[in-house]
Design a protein around this nucleic acid. Structure first.
Lengths: 102, 102
DNA sequence: TTCGTATATCGTCGAAATACGAATTTCAGC
DNA sequence: GCTGAAATTCGTATTTCGACGATATACGAA
């Protein structure tokens, strides 16, 4: 595991916190499954009010997990691939081989 | 990406939420760096009161990230490798290849 | 047993998260 | 311009989090 800067730690914690709610995990999964873009049908897949879903989308957006672009009166979201890459990379560095020496 | 059960989603969100704080990321990193066991020197590496660190350790313990065993008057913590494995596995399934088709 | 160290738990507080409905914004179409 | 659909923001209530100091617990050593 490489040395992490304080920024690395912050970045990782922020990305992780954004995933720390089942609804947001679902949203992210839904976006990955459906592809690059989705309107508020996401809300239909969740037992939550539209305004609540909108807030969860905002959290994911602020954390950098997703991006949204305007598409007429609706909004089209897609995964931000680089966030996933960053996250996977950091997680990979938290690999715990039981036989590692330090 | 495989289908996830609701339990998968919950499990993932719980593990992620436990990582959603810089102090806990640091603790986990410290445990990985130092090896299997560490007393409350962890607290010395953080700018937090001992009781606060203890609470963070509890969160990590409840989430399954770490285990502690009693060692005289102190306590020895170590990473729970299976949690990391689970987390890495789930994260791996959230892989977003930009050229995936659905 | 008594003392000191190491941890954990308790009680409290302000801050942040979560959820909802209502109000507002945005934009296509008439 | 006005209307309706989609989405966000606002206001509010409730819950959970994060931090601390004080207290309690566990245990080795004196």
């Amino acid at each position: 595991m490489k040395n992490w800067t304080n920024d690395d730690v912050e970045t990782f914690a922020n990305l992780a916190r954004a995933l720390g709610h089942p609804a947001r995990v679902q949203i992210l999964r839904e976006l990955i499954l459906r592809g690059e873009c989705i309107g508020g049908d996401i809300a239909d897949t969740l037992p939550l009010a539209a305004s609540t879903v909108s807030q969860h989308l905002k959290v994911l957006r602020n954390a950098g997990w997703i991006q949204g672009r305007t598409d007429g009166p609706r909004r089209c979201y897609c995964i931000n691939a680089s966030s996933i890459a960053t996250f996977n990379k950091l997680v990979g560095e938290v690999d715990a081989r039981p036989d590692r020496k330090s």
